[in-house]
């Protein structure tokens, strides 16, 4: 089993629920590590459906958005689904400004997101 330093995982049915350890996802080294850990879930651990719960995240930069986009492509390539939930308004605005709210399937909360898989 891979070690996840930046993620907290729980399995709910066929969905892997991911929470973030870091409140601010911006340091370049952390973002690289975070990206690798997320990609491992798909590529090495063969998980298909991911729900990213952002409840603990207070800040993220454009570099983190890039990792999420790459993750979305990997999930789709493996026939899975990626959903995001519990995004606080300040961060949702970042998704809205960049129109990534159209690319990602964003739900208000974890229950909504789980029900939509």
């Amino acid at each position: 089993m891979a070690v996840h330093r930046r993620l907290q995982l729980s399995q709910v049915g066929e969905v892997c629920v991911v929470r973030f350890v870091d409140r601010k996802i911006l340091d370049e080294a952390n973002i690289q590590e975070l990206g690798q850990e997320l990609f491992q879930l798909i590529e090495d651990e063969d998980r298909k459906n991911l729900l990213l719960n952002f409840s603990s995240v207070e800040f993220l930069s454009s570099a983190a958005l890039g990792k999420l986009i790459t993750l979305d492509k990997k999930v789709k390539a493996h026939g899975g689904k990626l959903k995001l939930s519990n995004i606080r308004p300040e961060i949702y605005e970042v998704f809205a400004i960049t129109k990534l709210n159209k690319l990602f399937d964003i739900k208000d909360d974890e229950a909504d997101a789980l029900a939509s898989f």
């Binding site: 454009s62 990792k67 986009i69 492509k73 400004i97 129109k99 159209k102």
Partner: peptide
């Protein structure tokens, strides 16, 4: 323009817009 529908899925190029 990173919000161009054809470029939405490109991982980089959002910093200046933000």
């Amino acid at each position: 323009d990173c919000t161009d529908p054809d470029r939405l899925a490109v991982p980089s190029g959002r910093g200046i817009m933000l």
